[in-house]
């Protein structure tokens, strides 16, 4: 392969700052929430003779967990605002459009190594499906999380808004279980997501990784969904 080549490429601006900032806040907060969450389920033991404040105290770990959760929720609101004002941002895949399914199958066949390549997309339909799943996981985490958090005062506004989640799941302990299990699903998603992004960069070399910093995709092929930006 030559070191210097002349290639004609087109630049597509798709990700607004709202989306990119949300993405990186979410990535950081998921790490923080996951680690502190595991520590809340199985806390470290502080061996002293009297209860006093230490850096590993359960109180601090829980406060970090709650703060991270509120930051994530706040940035999610910004993300939704970005979706409203910017055409490039998208919350969910357009599953109501028929070609979505053919394209998903096409991409899936390539990922199963049955086809040598797949069509070029600004928004890979299979990846978009996985993001929809992630948002579903986040929604479950937010609902069960607040259902546990606000129940220190079941009669309060928060308790009234989220208390029903415990009733729907059967008991508050079930909310703990669901919250904990879905957290693991998010980590499994993250492993797959990081791999697929780096893989796309290696296989197609079309700025998949840098797009989440710059907001731009720089493509040699004309993507099938290029019209959606016009």
């Amino acid at each position: 392969m030559k070191s210097v080549r002349e290639v004609k490429r087109k630049e597509y601006y798709i990700f607004s700052p709202f989306l990119r900032i949300f993405h990186w806040i979410m990535a950081a907060m998921i790490v923080v929430l996951f680690i502190t969450g595991l520590l809340i389920t199985k806390p470290m033991n502080v061996s002293t003779t009297e209860p006093f404040f230490t850096i590993t105290s359960m109180d601090l770990v829980r406060d970090i967990h709650f703060t991270a959760a509120f930051i994530l929720c706040a940035s999610l609101i910004l993300r939704i605002y970005g979706f409203i004002v910017n055409k490039g941002d998208r919350l969910f895949p357009r599953v109501w459009e028929g070609h979505f399914y053919e394209e998903t199958v096409d991409v899936a066949l390539h990922y199963m190594l049955l086809k040598p390549h797949h069509a070029s997309f600004l928004r890979n339909p299979l990846a978009r499906m996985s993001y929809a799943a992630l948002y579903a996981f986040l929604a479950i985490e937010i609902l069960t999380g607040f259902a546990m958090y606000f129940m220190t005062n079941p009669s309060g506004v928060g308790g009234k808004l989220f208390g029903w989640v415990n009733t729907v799941l059967g008991s508050e302990m079930m909310s703990h279980y669901v919250h904990h299990y879905v957290a693991w699903f998010i980590i499994l998603f993250a492993i797959g997501h990081i791999y697929m992004v780096i893989r796309a960069e290696f296989m197609e070399g079309e700025s998949e990784v840098s797009s989440m910093f710059s907001g731009k995709k720089i493509l040699a092929h004309t993507p099938k969904d290029a019209k959606e930006l016009e």
């Binding site: 693991w184 492993i191 797959g192």
Partner: peptide, 27 residues
């Protein structure tokens, strides 16, 4: 669940590793 989660995480990591090798060969 934590033990199962770690096991699934390791398996997923191994899976994507194998997939990466296969992808490079295919490319």
């Amino acid at each position: 669940a934590d033990k199962i989660g770690v096991a699934l995480g390791v398996m997923t990591a191994a899976g994507v590793g194998a997939h990466a090798v296969a992808s490079i060969i295919q490319r």
